[in-house]
């Protein structure tokens, strides 16, 4: 179950970390379906943590905040003022619940990559990223249709000031940009960052431990120790990248909503 476990005596050789380290075909609880694997339980625990922590934080809020409430308010205001209100202006309250949930869910799951026990960013499994990107797509497309009705299509597909003889070129391009590439890039950006980050950590840890325990070669052992130590620095970098990707995903969702509901100038 531990993906970076050292090769057994029998194998003898070194197996570099690969795509296979992200495939989990064993259910965590024996007897449950195979899709209830490690990433599944991480996502569930992540969601429960988000719900539970925010639920706790939102109980008994006081005008004069305690230390814990101050911290919760800090994060809340980061999403509320820093993302939602800055980008969506007067419409922000409608979308704030989704954006807040999105940011928290992403942040916790990304940080699972550096958490003991989990040690895997949930979104390094692309399916979860596709799911969230699809939801964000629904939100910003839905917001556009809700506000402009069918006129949203015209608004989204025909930018203002385009001469009529270019429309045959612009409309398919705009369709691709608005309805196809946006969700795909959202999902892939998140997935690829988490996937690659985790792979880098694996390389340093697995390779480092392999070298560290390599018999009869002190140079290998020293470089292995250095690389294992260095993996801690990478873990800190991954903490930062996890937060950054959560932020980017949320900001871009807000940005897409903003372009959907923006009045024509």
């Amino acid at each position: 179950m531990i993906p970076w476990a050292l090769p057994t005596e029998g194998g003898g050789g070194y197996t570099p970390p690969s795509v296979n380290d992200f495939i989990f075909d064993v259910p965590v609880i024996p007897g449950t379906p195979v899709w209830m694997n490690k990433p599944f339980w991480q996502a569930v625990i992540g969601a429960l943590l988000v719900v539970g922590l925010w639920w706790l934080a939102s109980r008994r809020l006081k005008l004069k905040p305690s230390k814990g409430q101050f911290f919760a308010e800090y994060i809340y205001e980061f999403v509320r003022n820093g993302i939602a209100r800055d980008i969506l202006h007067q419409d922000y309250k409608k979308f704030l619940p989704y954006l807040l949930g999105l940011f928290s869910f992403l942040l916790i799951n990304n940080w699972f990559g550096e958490f003991f026990v989990f040690m895997l960013p949930t979104f390094s499994n692309v399916g979860f990223a596709y799911g969230l990107a699809f939801l964000s797509w629904c939100v910003y497309v839905g917001a556009g249709f809700h506000k402009f009705g069918i006129g949203f299509l015209k608004k989204a597909l025909i930018p203002e000031g385009v001469p009529w003889y270019l429309l045959w070129l612009i409309i398919p391009l705009e369709f691709l940009a608005t309805f196809v590439t946006r969700p795909v890039t959202l999902a892939l950006r998140l997935f690829a960052n988490m996937f690659a980050g985790h792979l880098v950590v694996l390389v340093f840890v697995v390779g480092g431990s392999f070298l560290l325990t390599y018999a009869g070669n002190p140079v290998f052992n020293v470089s292995g120790a250095v690389s294992v130590l260095f993996s801690f620095a990478i873990l800190f970098l991954e903490l930062f990248i996890g937060a950054l990707q959560a932020y980017i995903f949320t900001v871009l969702t807000a940005q897409y909503v903003s372009t959907s509901v923006a009045e024509a100038h």
Partner: peptide
Amino acid sequence: HHLSEVIVGIILM
């Protein structure tokens, strides 16, 4: 790898 991931992600979100 498991298509359930997409659905689980959506439901949890």
